[in-house]
Design a protein around this nucleic acid. Structure first.
Length: 260
DNA sequence: ACGTGCTCCTGTGTGC
DNA sequence: TGCACACAGGAGCACG
């Protein structure tokens, strides 16, 4: 479930495996993954080139070419990147492979919900996809404005990429857990203090998760995520976690201290 | 304009 | 035992 922290870790992985290396070939194993480009486009756009930099916006990873334009990776629920020195080591469910003059990067995605495309630039891509500001970049005033006038559940808003980019089902639960607010709470009844608590928790949770290398096992013991399953207990008070559908997504929360 | 719910996809786990 | 099916969830879409 790559959300912002996982994609940030992918970006760093991409940096130290794939930057400044000549791309010898691009092989598309499943065309499903391509959006608005053909395998030929991708191959022609990358072969003989190299990546000079990377960027991340929300859950999207961008690889900047030495010529203008970027490749865009989205990871759906099960997408990931893996680098191998040995060309024979291609892992199962590789959908696209990028061969350098030595070694290759595999885009692996079991459930095929990910996407790869090309874009002239990040700003243009962001406009086309109608993405809200990145969750790590957005300031409090802008955050407050984005939520003002909204009436739905706070969890749904946090997960809405057109409002804020980067938060998915898992981290929205964690943010609301840390903020002490139940996921189904309607936005219009949240006061300034609650909005502030959510904003602060968003920054804190995302920063902590990135620092932990997006490794769920390295999160602080006070975090909900490791307990986020049927029969799970609140890491703070031991109360059974509640399970609820919000906007079609399964959310977990502690009914004991997510009240307000 | 907004919210809800269905669809894509496939491996995993549960229940009959 | 073996099969059927719900579930996981990011995002786009149809619908109300």
């Amino acid at each position: 479930m790559p959300e912002l922290p996982e994609v940030e870790i992918f970006r760093r992985y991409f940096d130290h495996t794939s930057l400044h290396r000549e791309i010898a070939a691009v092989t598309v194993r499943d065309t499903y993954v391509l959006s608005e480009v053909t395998p030929r486009d991708l191959e022609a756009g990358l072969a003989g080139r190299h990546f000079v930099a990377s960027d991340r916006f929300g859950k999207y990873l961008f690889g900047e070419r030495d010529t203008a334009g970027c490749i865009v990776f989205h990871f759906g629920m099960t997408g990931s990147l893996s680098y191998f020195d040995d060309p024979a080591d291609e892992p199962p469910f590789t959908r696209v492979r990028f061969d350098f003059t030595r070694g290759f990067l595999a885009y692996v995605d079991v459930r095929k919900l990910g996407m790869i495309t090309l874009t002239p630039g990040i700003d243009q891509f962001r406009r086309e996809k109608k993405l809200g500001p990145d969750a790590c970049e957005v300031g409090f005033e802008e955050f407050r404005k984005i939520l003002s006038g909204k009436r739905g559940a706070i969890k749904s808003a946090l997960m809405d990429q057109s409002l804020i980019s980067g938060i998915g089902n898992i981290y929205s639960d964690e943010i609301l857990f840390q903020a002490g607010i139940p996921p189904q709470r309607k936005i219009n009844i949240l006061d300034e203090t609650a909005i502030r608590a959510i904003y602060d928790a968003m920054k804190e949770v995302l920063g902590t998760a990135i620092h932990a290398g997006a490794d769920m096992d390295k999160l602080p013991p006070s975090y909900l995520i490791p307990h986020r399953e049927k029969g799970g207990m609140c890491p703070r008070c031991g109360h059974s976690l509640a399970r609820i559908k919000v906007g079609g997504r399964t959310g977990y929360y502690c009914p004991e201290h997510q009240r307000v």
